[in-house]
C-alpha cells in the first residue's frame, strides 16, 4: 500500500510538472498593443525563474517519495542541522529575489514616472455600469465638473458655466487612443470603486470616488475599425459589474480628433 502511494505521488507530481509546463508555454497573454512591454518581460522572467524552481523542487519531491519508501529494518538517517547548507540556500534565495526586486522597482518607477509633455489627455469616469469618456477638445483643457450637477442628462456633472468645458467631447463606452503618442488617462468614479482595465495595453487603474488618479501609456498598434478592443471593469462594482464593458479604438495620432468628433456625432 505504502509503495503504491509513493509511486502514485511521484507520478502525480511529474504529471503536474509536465502538463503545467506545457500549458505555460502557450501564449496566454493578450497580444500587446502598448509600450508596456516591460511588464510582459517581467512576467516572462518571473515565469522562467519560478518555473525552474517549480520543476526542480517538484522533481525532488517526486524523487524522494519514490526513492525513500519505508522498508523493514531500514532506518532513516539522523541528520537535522547543517548551518552552512541552511545559510547557503537562504542567501542564494535572497540574492535571486533581490535581483527580481531590483528589476521590479525599476519597472514600477518607470511606469509611474511623469508622462511626456506632448501626451494627449482623456478622462475616463466610471459609473454603475458604464465608462464615460471625455476629451478636452480644441483648448486641451477639461472643463470643470461638479457631482452636484449630475443627472440623467449630465452623467458626469459637467459645469455649463465653465468655458473650458464648452468644447469637451463626451463619449459613452468608446475610447479612442492615438497610435505612437502617449496618452494621459484621468481615472475617476461617480459612485463606487471601479477598475479601468485595458488587457491588451497592460493598463489597470482603480477608479476611486472622490479621487482622481492618472495613468499614461502609448498605444503602439492600430485596431481595425470593425474590430475594436475592450475596456473591462476589474473591480466588483455591483450587479452590472460583468457588463461594464467599453470599446477601445487605436487610430493614427493625426486622426484622433476627427475620430472622436465622428464618434460623438453619431
Amino acid at each position: 500500500m505504502g509503495k503504491l502511494q509513493g509511486l502514485l505521488f511521484a507520478l502525480a507530481t511529474v504529471v503536474l510538472v509536465v502538463v503545467s509546463t506545457a500549458y505555460f508555454m502557450k501564449p496566454w497573454m493578450p497580444p500587446l498593443l502598448s509600450d508596456r512591454g516591460d511588464i510582459d518581460h517581467a512576467i516572462w522572467v518571473a515565469l522562467v525563474l519560478t518555473g525552474v524552481v517549480f520543476i526542480l523542487t517538484n522533481l525532488l519531491l517526486a524523487w524522494f517519495s519514490w526513492r525513500y519508501q519505508d522498508a523493514e529494518g531500514a532506518r532513516a538517517i539522523y541528520w537535522h542541522d547543517n548551518p552552512k547548507l541552511e545559510w547557503t540556500w537562504t542567501l542564494v534565495t535572497a540574492a535571486i529575489l533581490f535581483v527580481i526586486l531590483f528589476n521590479a522597482l525599476g519597472l514600477w518607477a518607470s511606469i509611474n514616472g511623469p508622462a511626456p509633455a506632448d501626451a494627449a489627455l482623456v478622462e475616463v469616469t466610471g459609473q454603475q455600469f458604464a465608462w464615460n469618456v471625455r476629451y478636452p477638445g480644441k483648448d486641451g483643457i477639461l472643463g470643470r465638473t461638479d457631482f452636484k450637477l449630475a443627472s440623467q442628462e449630465n452623467l458626469i456633472g459637467l459645469d455649463p458655466a465653465d468655458a473650458a468645458g464648452k468644447d469637451d467631447v463626451l463619449l459613452l463606452n468608446q475610447l479612442y487612443l492615438p497610435k505612437d503618442r502617449a496618452i494621459r488617462v484621468r481615472v475617476r468614479s461617480m459612485d463606487v470603486i471601479h477598475s479601468f482595465f485595458l488587457p491588451q495595453f497592460r493598463v489597470k487603474q482603480d477608479a476611486m470616488p472622490g479621487m482622481v488618479t492618472e495613468v499614461w501609456f502609448t498605444a503602439k498598434e492600430l485596431t481595425p475599425p470593425d474590430k475594436p478592443l475592450e475596456i473591462a471593469c476589474a473591480e466588483h462594482c455591483g450587479l452590472g459589474h460583468y457588463r461594464m464593458r467599453g470599446q477601445v479604438h487605436v487610430v493614427a495620432a493625426s486622426e484622433l480628433d476627427a475620430a472622436v468628433a465622428a464618434a460623438a456625432g453619431q
Binding site: 511588464i39 521590479a104 493598463v203
Partner: peptide
Amino acid sequence: QAGPDIHLHD
C-alpha cells in the same frame, strides 16, 4: 512585483 501586478491584479 508591482509591475506585473498591474496586469494580473483582480
